[in-house]
């Protein structure tokens, strides 16, 4: 996408510089309209955009949470300025500002808020999704390897916004079981 944008930008710049160099003879207005407006203005962007849109919708579909057998379900509730995480597999367990997930398994995060709008964003795991009052938005994330991933709240939420971060700890299978049993806490 970036290189495509670069090529288009370079093309426009060249088209801007050329009329200062070349001496164009007078051509028919109809012909110029056909070249500039119909060709470059209409047909060219329509083609590029159709391709881009198709690609975007396709990728967007792939990212949607689909029903899989081993999905882990967790909850995330934002408030000014902390996240509380809950676990379907370990009822009663809550963690503050650290979300524990198993690595290598799809995880559905049900995101909601106790006060104002926040946004749940772990850049390396998925795109962001808002925490909207009265709703639970489902975000599918998956960590390929165990480790710690930084997360941010990405919707302006008042005075404590800049410090409003959290982290995601992805465990291997054994570590996940240990977490669910409560060994780690």
């Amino acid at each position: 996408m970036l290189s495509g944008a670069g090529v288009i930008f370079a093309l426009v710049m060249v088209l801007l510089v050329l009329p200062y160099r070349a001496q164009n003879g007078p051509k028919g207005e109809t012909r110029q309209i056909r070249v500039w407006i119909v060709g470059l203005g209409l047909a060219f962007p329509m083609t590029v955009l159709a391709a881009l849109l198709g690609y975007g919708l396709f990728v967007g579909e792939q990212l949607l949470p689909r029903d899989l057998p081993d999905v882990v379900r967790v909850g995330a509730e934002g408030r000014q300025w902390a996240w509380t995480f809950t676990y379907e597999d370990a009822p009663g367990t809550t963690t503050q500002d650290v979300l524990h997930i198993p690595a290598g398994r799809p995880v559905d995060v049900a995101i909601t808020t106790a006060d104002v709008i926040h946004s749940f964003w772990v850049p390396r795991l998925a795109g962001k999704l808002d925490a909207v009052p009265g709703r639970a938005n489902i975000l599918r994330i998956e960590a390929d390897a165990p480790g710690v991933y930084q997360g941010l709240s990405a919707e302006f939420s008042g005075a404590g916004y800049d410090r409003f971060t959290f982290s995601v700890t992805a465990h291997d299978a054994a570590g996940w079981q240990a977490f669910l049993r409560g060994d780690e806490r």
């Binding site: 426009v12 801007l16 050329l18 009329p19 110029q32 309209i33 500039w36 407006i37 470059l40 203005g41």
Partner: peptide, 8 residues
């Protein structure tokens, strides 16, 4: 492109 065409 109408503007660029005008320049040309």
């Amino acid at each position: 492109f109408a503007w660029i065409g005008t320049m040309w």
